[in-house]
Amino acid sequence: MEDENEHKIHIRNQALQLFMQYGARSVSMDDIASAVGSSKKTIYQYYTDKDHLVGDAIEQILADNGTQCRTFHQISDNAVHEGFLAIGQTSELFRNMNPVLINDLKKYHPRVYKKFVDYKNEFIYEIIVENIRRGIGEGLYRDDFNIDIIAQFRVGSIDILFMPEFYGRLKEGLFHAQLEIFYFFLHGMATPKGQKLIEKYKKHKPKNSSDAKD
């Protein structure tokens, strides 16, 4: 059973790399079989079809991201620190991600896309609200704005990144775009005390690990 699970994980991970690089539509089961080094018949022992495999790969990303977000909340020194840890992890994800992937999910894998949308609109929204409240309590964020509206705005900014009319005009790609949006968002909320921390972490970015507080 352990070997069987390891093989399934290997298939999922290899497929995910291909989906991240090329999108979901253009990657065939033959491509995945070639990357895994096995036959399609073997893959179908674990996955009923491509939609099943796409779903498993994306769900794993969401699960890992959720775990990391909770960890960053626990190990961070303050709300700004927590934000930088989270954006650091997201940056690594976006560095190797073809933005067409999300649009492929929307068009060809609606069940999987709905899970992504629900995760973003529910879990990520709550994480942002918690961070804002924490930052206000720490005196790092202002307290003169509507938390719900600003949190919804931040969630909405994620959607903008995957709009073809947006990313198609970018010169530096998603990696830099999402950083700029994050900085803009953070500066808009920050008090003078928070602004100093933002500049500190921009110059010396925290590591995404359990020693991030060092």
Rank of each mutant, 00 (worst) to 15 (best):
E4Y: 12
E4G: 05
H10N: 07
I11T: 04
I11P: 04
A15Q: 05
L18K: 07
M20S: 02
Q21M: 09
Y22T: 09
S26Q: 14
S26V: 09
V27A: 03
S28N: 14
S28V: 11
M29L: 15
D31I: 00
D31Y: 04
A35G: 07
K40S: 12
Y44M: 09
Y46F: 15
Y46C: 10
K50I: 06
H52D: 15
V54H: 02
G55A: 12
G55P: 14
D56W: 01
I58D: 03
Q60A: 09
Q60D: 11
G66D: 10
G66M: 13
T67W: 01
T67E: 13
C69R: 01
C69W: 00
R70K: 13
A79M: 03
H81F: 04
E82F: 01
G83Y: 01
A86F: 01
I87T: 00
S91W: 02
S91H: 05
P99R: 06
V100P: 06
I102D: 03
L105M: 07
K106C: 11
Y108G: 09
F116N: 02
K120P: 07
F123M: 12
F123K: 10
I124T: 09
I127N: 00
I128C: 03
E130S: 14
R134F: 00
I136G: 00
E138C: 03
L140N: 04
R142H: 09
N146M: 06
D148C: 04
I150S: 08
I150V: 15
F153K: 10
V155Q: 03
L161P: 03
E165A: 13
L170A: 11
E172L: 12
G173D: 11
H176D: 15
A177G: 08
A177T: 08
F184P: 05
F185Y: 06
T191I: 02
Q195D: 12
L197E: 14
L197T: 02
L197F: 10
I198L: 10
K207G: 10
S209L: 12
S210F: 15
D211P: 09
D211G: 11
A212N: 11
